[in-house]
Simulated assay, not measured.
Amino acid sequence: MEPKNIKKIAIIRRNGFGDFICAVPLIKHIENSYPDAEITLFVDKRNCAIVPYFFSHLKVVVIPGGNKYLALIQIALKYRSENFDIVISVKTSPMKLNNLFLAILGGKQRFAIVDEKSWHSRFINRPRPQEQFKQGHQALNCLRILDPKIQSLSSELYPRIQLDQSPNEKLALSPPYLFISVSNNRTTSSLAVPALANIANNVHKLSSFSVIISYQGQDKDRAIELRQSLNMDSQICDTPDLSSFLSLLNCADVVLVGDGGICHFAACLNKKLVALYANTSIETWGPLSDNAICFFDNDNVNNIPTEQIQESLQRFIDLSRTETPAANDNMLPR
């Protein structure tokens, strides 16, 4: 179908923050390729919170919680009358539930990755063979679900979040700021508190900076332990919602974090980022940023030589200080 004949497009992307962020380049590409089409995003409740940071103008349908099969079937039946021209499952592996959803939704062209031996592959009339998507970045493979001829990901399609640069009222520190999160749902991607403290203290011997410590509720004790172990000014910050968290992260000059949602958000904010990966492939899930240094270990990020992490942090912090020459004059009262 000619682009001018495409009037309605549906995109389904469930799962976590990082998964949705890696789908953003595809959505941008679709907007560019089909400028006259109405785009509807089908997302779960969690991802619904981040959509407005990337696409404030698109129609969003929230998939309710509970029984996931029942929820998807009900939503698909409700919106079947939209008569979508294109429907896409943005999942880079075969997913029977998404494929069933596309079939019930009833799009004229249904794009998804399939395993040809699986029964649900028959629902997809624009199938993409699974074996063609086993390598390459997740975001690039999302693009290739629509157009397999795409071989590279343009930086113009990188996910970006633009936030107000006004000072965060929570902070009573002097810049530059090193942002550290002591929370990660992947245990192997989280540095131990003594290692975090040792790295920060060694870097601080050569360059002054302050530390913003972020945590999730269950890790408050780890945040307190880290602050007590640091030799520089630091502050533990509670962020009860996504908005307050992104506002805090946006204040950072340098971010040190394991792979996961925070890593991807830091890349979206174009922060100087030192990202630590274990088990998860950097080639597949690395941050979409030209401003990131990534390290990898097969088993656990605590096996990564701390000297390498320190050197990268030092470089980024020194660069941040040259970009904020008034850093030493901006100390706020504690």
Rank of each mutant, 00 (worst) to 15 (best):
I282L: 06
Y34C: 12
R126V: 11
L72K: 00
K8V: 11
S243N: 09
D253F: 09
S154D: 09
Y158W: 14
Y177F: 14
K45C: 02
N302Q: 03
F209C: 02
N99V: 00
G107P: 05
Q216R: 11
C142T: 05
A275W: 01
S189D: 14
V114Y: 07
Q162H: 10
T284E: 15
R334K: 15
A172C: 09
E156L: 10
F42E: 05
L269Y: 07
R46Q: 15
L249C: 07
S243I: 01
H29K: 15
E225R: 15
N250C: 08
G66N: 01
A292E: 02
S208L: 02
Q135G: 10
E311N: 12
I161E: 03
N98I: 04
L269N: 07
N201C: 04
K108T: 14
L288F: 09
L140I: 14
L269S: 03
V51T: 11
R334C: 01
K45P: 00
F133Q: 07
R222D: 13
I9T: 15
D85S: 06
S118Y: 02
S247K: 14
G107W: 08
S210H: 13
K170V: 01
Q216W: 06
E311G: 04
F245Y: 05
M95P: 00
V301W: 03
G260H: 11
L100T: 11
G16W: 03
D259Q: 13
L143F: 12
I293E: 07
T324L: 13
F17R: 03
D85K: 09
P3A: 09
V254K: 05
I6E: 05
Y53C: 02
A292H: 01
N328I: 04
N198F: 09
I50H: 01
Y277P: 01
V203Y: 05
E169D: 14
L248H: 03
V87E: 13
Q162G: 03
F55S: 08
L269P: 05
S183R: 02
R110L: 04
L58A: 07
G260C: 00
L276I: 06
M95T: 14
N47Y: 07
V193D: 07
Y53K: 06
L276T: 08
N99I: 05
N328H: 08
L206K: 15
A200V: 04
E311H: 10
S121H: 11
Y69T: 10
V254Y: 02
E131Q: 15
Q162N: 13
A292R: 02
L230E: 02
K7G: 05
A278P: 10
I104M: 03
P129I: 15
G260K: 12
V255H: 00
Y158V: 14
L249H: 07
I199L: 09
Q310S: 15
V257Y: 03
L313Y: 05
G261M: 00
D238S: 14
F265E: 08
F17P: 08
L171D: 06
L273T: 10
V60M: 10
N141V: 10
S89C: 00
L102V: 07
K7T: 14
K205P: 09
N198Q: 13
I50Q: 05
S229I: 08
R222H: 05
S166M: 10
P167H: 09
L276F: 06
A275F: 07
Y79P: 06
K28F: 10
I212P: 07
G286S: 01
T322V: 14
